[in-house]
Design a protein around this nucleic acid. Sequence first.
DNA 1: GTCTATACCAGGATAGAC
DNA 2: GTCTATCCTGGTATAGAC
Lengths: 230, 230
Amino acid sequence: MTFSSFGRDMNLTMEVICRELFLHNRESIKIQKEETAVRNLVKILDAALRLCNEKGFASMSLRDLSREADLSLGAMYSYFSSKDDLLRLMQGQCRSMVLRALESGIEGFYDPRMRLRRLIQAHLYSSEILQPWFYMSYMETRSFPKDEYSLAIEAELFTEKTLVDIMLEGQASGLFKPVNAGLLGAVTKAMLQDWYLKRWKYSKRKITVQNYCDFVLDFIESYLLFTAEA
Amino acid sequence: MTFSSFGRDMNLTMEVICRELFLHNRESIKIQKEETAVRNLVKILDAALRLCNEKGFASMSLRDLSREADLSLGAMYSYFSSKDDLLRLMQGQCRSMVLRALESGIEGFYDPRMRLRRLIQAHLYSSEILQPWFYMSYMETRSFPKDEYSLAIEAELFTEKTLVDIMLEGQASGLFKPVNAGLLGAVTKAMLQDWYLKRWKYSKRKITVQNYCDFVLDFIESYLLFTAEA
DNA sequence: GTCTATACCAGGATAGAC
DNA sequence: GTCTATCCTGGTATAGAC
C-alpha cells in the first residue's frame, strides 16, 4: 500500500468531511440547506483547525475564529451551540475518520506480518492527510469534559490494543520473537504519533511519510522477525 | 546507573528547585527574604504545575491558582509580574534542570554504547522525577512568545542531536550497524517523551521507569549492535 | 509582605433587525 | 440565514490599607 493509493481510496477532502459531519449532526445544526451548511462548515473548520493548532483551543477566541472564517459570530452560532459544542463536533468527526481508516487498512488481511504493516501504514498515511485533526485531538484531550475524555482515551487504547493483538498473534504462530509485546505496542504508538506531532521537524528535513513509514517498519520488524541479519 | 542512585545524586526536591529559581531571578521577584520567598514559591509552583497539567496553562486562571496555592492574588504578583512571566520563570527553570541532568549523565563516559545508555537513562529518570515540568513544557511550547519558543525548540533539537551524534560515533568506530541514525534519533526521542506524556497509562499497567528504560535500551541496541541473536 | 477591593477589558453568548 | 449590537461573566492586573 503506497501513500498515494491510500489517499485516493479514502478521499478525505475538506468538503467530503464537512458533508459527512453535517449529515451526522443535523439535529444540532440549525441550518437546513445542505449546500449552504457544507460551504460554511468548510470555512469554519478550516479556520478552527488553523487557529487551534497555532495557539490551542482555549486560546482561540470565537471572535478570532469568526474573522478567519469570514462569518459573523451570530452566523457561526447556527452551526454549533457553544464553543465546547464545536470541539465536540470536530472530535467526533475525527474519531470516526480514524476508526474507518484503520479498519479499512487491515480488513481482508490475515497474515500477522502483513496486518502489522498495513495497520502502521494506515495510521501514518491517515495522520499525514488529517494532520491538523490528529494534532488537535492529541493536544486538547485533557481539557475535554469527562465523557468526551473517556471516548478519546478509549480510541487511543483501541489502536494500541490492535497493534498488540497482531503482535501476540504473530508470536503465537511462531512468526515473531517472544519480546514484550505490550511495551512494543506502546512505543510503536508513540512513534506513530510523533509523525503528526512534530510535522515541522520532519518537513524541514524533507523526510516524507513514505521514508518515515519504511524506517519504522524496518525498525519494528528487525526486532520482531527471526530473519538473519543482512 | 539505577533510578534510585540517579535520584539521590540529582536531589531535585521542590524546595531545592524553588531556591535555585529564586536565586536566579532576584531582580524580577519583589520579595527580599529568601526563606519567605522559597516557601511561597513552593506553594505557587506546586499549584501551578497541578492546575496547568490538568487543564493547560491558558485555561488556568490566576484566581484558581491563588486559591490552590493558598495565597492572595496580590501576594502572588510579588513573585511574577504577569501570567506570561510565570510561564517564563517555570520554563527557564525546567530547561536548566534538563540540561544539567543530561550533561551529568554522559560526562566522563567515552564508549558510544555506554554513552547512549547513560543518556537514555538520564532522560527517562529525570522525566520521572520532573514529570509535571516536562509535561507542561511539552504542551505549552507552541503558545510561547517567539523568543521563548525558539529556546524550547533549540532544547528539543539539542537532545536529539546528542543522541544522533553518539549513534554516528558508534557507527564510525564500527560498533553500530549503519542504519539511519537521523531517524533512529528522532523516534528514540519520541519514545523518551512518551514516558512523561502518557504517565497515566504506564502507571495503570504498573510499568516502572526501570522496566520502560530496560525495554527501550534493548529495542534500540538490538537494532544498532552487531551481536548475534540469543 | 500580604490582604481586600476594584478597575478594566476580553471573551462567550443572545436578541432581534434585515 | 446572516448580520450588528449588546449583555454579562470572569479574567488579568493594580492600588492602597494593614
